[in-house]
Design a protein around this nucleic acid. Structure first.
Lengths: 192, 192
DNA sequence: CGAGCGCTTGATTGAGTTCAAAAATCGTGG
DNA sequence: CCACGATTTTTGAACTCAATCAAGCGCTCG
């Protein structure tokens, strides 16, 4: 049995047997570092489950600056839910930070597995609400916390990811310049 | 027929007749300015539909500062969805900015109206995804936009609300100090 | 009328940006 | 495997936006 079936089983909290029934509905896609799964203006048609590698989702503001909304390492999912559900052009890009392998989960896939295993539907709703929870926390953090606090929180939220992405991407996630992040880190070393 | 039934009918995009069937499941609550519908640490058990008045949802950071996540004027809904769905203690407060009248919509209410009118369920999902959309936009805005840009965007998002709330609350929504907002506004007057 | 609250204004401070350049690291082709 | 160019990170100096601290004004409500 392929490893990814176990991961999907964990994600959706359904028996592996149910996942196996839908195995042929999953497309596996390998993408190289820098390649895109979603471009601004496109409709996000699928949910991406990261089997190997690391993706990010970001947008570009009117000054041409990138702002990263999420990273997604192994076993995370990445999707612009509002574009997917509402069938609206997305404001975001999704690309690979490392050479990656993703499982492309279509809405039909979720329908199908929901039929086989109704609890999967509730689980999707839970994932949706966990997502809302993280978005809300991110907002209150951006409203109130300093660059240093946000950086420390990033390290907790994404353990072991700092080593895998260029530092300027972390800065872009935090909403500060790469120079500022470099200084924040220098200060933290001094403190210890 | 009461006005609020028409509003709920609009919100859920179902015939007024379906709303009427569930009318007795709705609790109407009047709350005075400053009174709370949700306290930090409590589980958010209901969705609040603002029939009259104006509410806000906010949290308090470790320095004791308030950060407003949402305002909700007439015909808007307000709820900590992650607390409601996941049954987790909320990080947020909900209170009345003006004397208000809210419809307390329990999960059972939504179940009930969903049975009478299945399209209401899909509509709830749409509302959920519109909510995600607005949270995502807020994050990218906080990551990239200046205080002035955020203020102008607030005026668009919440037309006619500026006049109804103290200016320091708007500042708290924008993530700046009241003094800064005062200066931002002064600059905007000069520009014209 | 006076106390309190909200808003403004001024002076100062400070966190983070910008611009510039050096240092370190990465990656790719020879 | 090394070398060279490109990218990333660090550091420095000047600057800017917004925060802080403080004072004063105006309004409201008891």
């Amino acid at each position: 049995m392929e490893n990814f079936q176990i991961q999907i089983s964990n994600l959706l909290e359904v028996p592996v047997s149910a996942v196996e029934l839908c195995a042929e509905k999953i497309k596996i896609k390998k993408i190289q570092k820098g390649q895109f799964l979603l471009n601004e203006g496109e409709i996000c048609n699928d949910t991406f489950f990261v089997n190997k590698g690391l993706l990010r989702m970001y947008n570009i503001d009117k000054n041409g600056k990138e702002h990263i909304l999420h990273f997604a390492p192994e076993n995370w999912i990445l999707v612009d839910r509002s574009s997917l559900y509402l069938n609206q052009p997305s404001d975001y890009y999704i690309d690979a930070v490392e050479d990656s392998e993703v499982l492309v989960l279509s809405p039909e896939y979720f329908d199908f597995i929901g039929e086989k295993q109704p609890s999967a539907i509730a689980r999707q709703n839970t994932l949706l609400h966990l997502h809302i929870n993280s978005l809300q926390k991110r907002i209150t953090q951006l409203l109130g916390a300093t660059a240093e606090e946000r950086y420390l929180d990033f390290l907790k939220t994404y353990p072991n990811i700092f080593e895998r992405v260029p530092q300027w991407m972390v800065a872009s996630y935090l909403g500060i310049t790469p120079e500022s992040l470099s200084r924040v880190r220098k200060e933290l070393v001094k403190k210890k």
